[in-house]
Amino acid sequence: MRMKRKKRAQWLAFALFRLLGVLVVALLIWILGFIVYQGIGVISWEFLTTGPTEGMTGGGIYPAIVGTLCLVVGSLVISFPLGVMAGIYTQEYAKKGKLVQFIRLMTNNLAGIPSIVMGLFGMTLFVNTLGFGDSILAGSLTLSLLVLPIIIRTTEEALASVPYAFRVGSYALGATKLQTIARVVLPQALPNIMTGLVLSVGRVSGETAPILFTVAAYFLPKLPTSILDPVMALPYHLYVLVTSGTDLEATRPMAYGTALVLIVLVLIVNLLAHGVRNRLGRKVKMN
C-alpha cells in the first residue's frame, strides 16, 4: 500500500518534469516559429541588399548588416588575441594560488557587469575621453570588453582539457615551455578555443545596449569608409523599428524581417559552435 503511494508520487513528479522539458522546447519553438512565420515573407534579395527607404517602411537592411559585420570583426580583432593570451597566462604560467583566484574572480565579475554599464563606460572612455566619437572603433572596443570573459574562459577550459602527458612528452624531447605551449598545447586546444570565438560572434551581433551611445546610427544609408565612422547595426535597427518609427504599423514587416535575420544569424552561430565542438576535441562548457 505504502509502496504504491510512493510509486504514484514518483510517477506524478516525473510526469511533471517531462512536461516542463517539453514546455521549454515548446517555448523555443513558439518564439522562433512566430518570428519565422511573420518574417519569412519579408525576406528577399532586395531586403538584404538595399538600404531603408520611405521613412523605414520600405527597402531593406543592408547598411545594418554591414554595420554588424564591421562590429563583429572589429571587436573580435581586439578581444580574441587579448583573451587567448590572458587565458594562456592564467592556465599555463601563473602559479596556482591567490593570484589566479583573483584573476578568475575578476573575469567572472567582468562577465556579470550589465551591458548598459559597459555602454556608459565605453561612452565616457572611448567616445569622449579618447575622442573617437560615435564610431566603429569605439563600439568595437566596448563590445570587446563584453566578450573578453567568454574568450578567456573558453581558452582556459580548452587548455585544461589538453592531457598532461602531451606536455611532459614535449618537455622530454627538450622543448622549452614556450615551444611546448606554442607547438603542442595550443594546436590541441584550438578547436575548443574556436568555440569561444564563434559564441562571441553570436553575442556581439545581438547586443544593443553597449552600442546605443558608442556607435549606432539611427539612419545612415551610406556605408562606413573608415573605422571612425558610425554605422547602423541589426539589433539597434530592430529596436528603432519597433519603438520609434513614425508609422509603427507600416514598419512592422521590416521589424519582423530584421528579427528573422538576427535569429538566423544566432542559429548559424550555434550550429557552427556545435559542429566545431562535437567534431573536434573534448566538450567545453557553453555559456
Binding site: 545581438g206 544593443t208 535569429i263 550555434n270 555559456n287
Partner: peptide, 8 residues
C-alpha cells in the same frame, strides 16, 4: 534560448 538577442 540563451543565444537569442535581448532585443528580439
Amino acid at each position: 534560448l540563451a543565444g537569442i538577442p535581448s532585443v528580439v
